[in-house]
């Protein structure tokens, strides 16, 4: 148990702090931009995305910068409003995942003997389950709605954060001050709330941001497969309609498939870069 304050024992960083920071800021700018887009969607979008405003299958023009979709809705407006659903699902699903992951991680780390090993074997099971098929089966079974999409993603991505948090809790629970407070008769709940949680919270931030990045990708995948709520305008559902109306085989992919694809990539990348920078700073063992 080496105290982390001794610099000699610190593992070498993957990248100099400044570069990680710069990448993190870059990610933050992307994410900030997308969040602004989602918040001010009604002001930014030229049309109501649910309104049929022109002929179907129009190529880009000055009136419709990205053309129109298969029923004549403005694709640019769909893209802008799509940020709302995609980001909401990403963030809320990540919150769900972190709630489950932190609870399991803290309990498994704090009671490492019997309860902990049972929980961790369960985590192992969740981790080795074939991920995408399970996701598809669950989504098809639960039915199509925004809430179900969030739940499905949430219950599938909590295992990795749970492991990270457990290892942190394992090391925390044998620290002197924790031992001291326990030997003075502190109850488990008090120790967890007072000493353990505050020191895992920082670590959880990194996992949280990383989970958002994954959840956005999963939401897009589900919607693209038609397993999301096809009535909700998300980037994935734009791709779903592009696929089901043959846009992948026609020149329309340039304005119908590419923009939502890039948006999904940008959102996922943005959060991933932030997570990378955060973990660079706080992860004791990276």
């Amino acid at each position: 148990m080496t105290p982390p304050a001794i610099p000699a024992n610190r593992p070498r960083r993957l990248l100099p702090r400044s570069l990680a920071d710069r990448l993190g800021w870059f990610g933050a700018i992307i994410v900030g931009f997308l969040i602004l887009m989602a918040v001010f969607a009604p002001r930014l979008a030229p049309y109501d995305p649910s309104e049929r405003v022109a002929r179907p299958f129009l190529p880009p023009s000055s009136e419709h910068l990205l053309g129109t979709n298969d029923v004549g809705q403005d694709l640019l407006s769909e893209l802008i409003f799509g940020a709302r659903v995609s980001l909401t699902v990403g963030i809320v699903a990540a919150v769900v995942a972190m709630l489950i992951g932190t609870t399991v991680g803290v309990i498994a780390g704090y009671y490492p003997k019997r309860l902990g090993s049972v929980l961790m074997r369960f985590v192992d099971v969740v981790l080795i389950l074939p991920f995408l098929p399970l996701l598809i089966v669950l989504a098809a079974y639960l039915g199509r709605s925004l809430t179900n999409t969030i739940i499905v993603i949430g219950v599938l991505i909590w295992a990795a954060p749970a492991r990270i948090i457990r290892s942190q809790v394992l090391s925390l629970r044998s620290r002197e001050y924790v031992l001291a407070s326990r030997s003075m008769g502190a109850k488990d709940r008090w120790v967890i709330l007072r000493h353990i949680l505050p020191r895992t919270g920082l670590l959880a931030t990194g996992s949280f941001v990383r989970a958002i990045s994954g959840a956005i990708l999963l939401e897009a995948a589900l919607s693209f497969l038609g397993l999301g709520d096809p009535i909700q305008k998300s980037w994935g559902s734009i791709l779903f309609w592009a696929q089901s109306r043959g846009a992948f085989l026609t020149p329309a992919w340039k304005w119908w498939v590419l923009p939502p694809g890039l948006a999904i990539m940008a959102a996922s990348l943005g959060f991933a870069l932030i997570a990378f920078a955060v973990e660079e700073r706080i992860n004791p063992k990276l």
Partner: peptide
């Protein structure tokens, strides 16, 4: 849900019936 044209029909009908004060929520199911 396997028939995307039917889903679009449902969306359009919902829009049309809104004009006579009937609210239609489209549910796409297996």
């Amino acid at each position: 849900s396997s028939d995307s044209l039917r889903l679009r029909i449902a969306e359009l009908v919902a829009e049309m019936l809104a004009e006579i004060g009937i609210e239609v929520t489209v549910s796409s199911v297996e």
